[in-house]
Design a protein around this nucleic acid. Structure first.
Lengths: 196, 196
DNA sequence: CGCGCGATTGAGTAATTTCAAATCTAGTGG
DNA sequence: CCACTAGATTTGAAATTACTCAATCGCGCG
């Protein structure tokens, strides 16, 4: 693994809190780099959710698969996003979600034990994780409100404003699954919009 | 304010991490008790979201109000739940949500400055908040999946299983707003179920 | 006892889904 | 470079689901 990832990791952490070289050397030991190719799974339903992932490059989608084989997208994730089946990861249960790669990627893997050790060793890292969680919590809450109160049309627009880079790269059928509408409905909304 | 609240607070914190008497004395200074009556608002849209609240007793609902005056419930909260318009609170913006009391209550109020100071003073408290956020994050994620993948019927049942105490005390029309269906639809589901 | 809020029920309407088919696109191998 | 194929998107039409509006019922509180 080249140095690029590590530089990037450090930058990522220092957006929240400054750290010393020594500290960073320590932190590094908790991350394992991994290359992932398009269509490859990071996690599948039933796996032990041993790791969480910090994405250095590439794009992933995390989804729930129901009994009938329908996908429902929980989250997309690109550079500098964290992702895991956190329900399973934190409770050390088997995964109920799938994570799959949509664009060749490089990720850093961390175990729950790593996260907890790092948090307890370094107050700064506990702080880092808390801040990250805070942002994630607020983002999820916004999404819940959007699901409850907005029309599919509005949800699509909100998604586009929030993640302009993703809306370009991601097939619309997945965006539909994220928004909670069928791809046909999304398609119809989309063409309705052109007329404006 | 009687001692009861403080004992309760300490117990609440010590579910996550043990603290010394000294530490607790320090922690206490960041919380301000407040009594709230039914129908009283903790926050209204447009307010400065100065505080977050730890509920000692009583029940609240937090909701978003759209242009047409429709409510969408973001969260119910009872004893030992934290609640705030976190989007506004963390970013020090004006509130976009409402929090209102549904049953006479007692809460402890904390400012963002308090939370951050406490977190930085005491690694333990940063840990406490991180653990709480983790749980909240996972719970919200489950709700998103439920909104995407389950029928109103299933969502109602899931809600009942998850919050059996709330489903009794809370008027069904609010539960409908939480689940994202009209009260009429919920009512029909409910009567359909009786026939089983 | 009556008022007001919540819950229920009915009927008609609007929105979305489903199923099916046609079209378009990007990536693959020859 | 082209032909081919699998995946993605669009379109149409019918069926389903949930919503809205309106009226009624039920119950607890003052």
């Amino acid at each position: 693994m080249n140095h690029y990832s590590w530089d990037n990791l450090r930058k990522h952490i220092e957006e929240i809190t400054p750290i010393s070289d020594e500290e960073f050397e320590h932190i590094k030991t908790f991350f394992t780099p991994k290359r992932v190719k398009k269509h490859q799974y990071l996690i599948q339903e039933g796996d032990h959710a041993t790791f969480e992932f910090l994405i250095m490059s590439g794009i992933f989608r995390m989804f729930y698969l129901d009994d009938e084989g329908k996908e429902y997208i929980v989250q997309f994730a690109g550079e500098n996003w964290w992702m895991a089946d956190y329900q399973a990861y934190f409770n050390e249960k088997k995964a109920t979600l799938h994570i799959t790669c949509m664009e060749d990627a490089e990720v850093l893997c961390m175990t729950l034990h790593g996260r907890e050790t790092l948090s307890s060793d370094l107050h700064k890292m506990e702080h880092f994780f808390r801040v990250k969680l805070t942002k994630g919590y607020v983002a999820q809450q916004r999404r819940i409100i959007s699901l409850l109160s907005s029309t599919p049309q509005q949800r699509y627009e909100e998604f586009g404003q929030l993640y302009p880079h993703m809306i370009q790269k991601i097939p619309k059928k997945y965006i539909a699954e994220y928004l909670g509408v069928s791809r046909e409905t999304l398609s119809r909304l989309y063409s309705a919009n052109k007329g404006r």
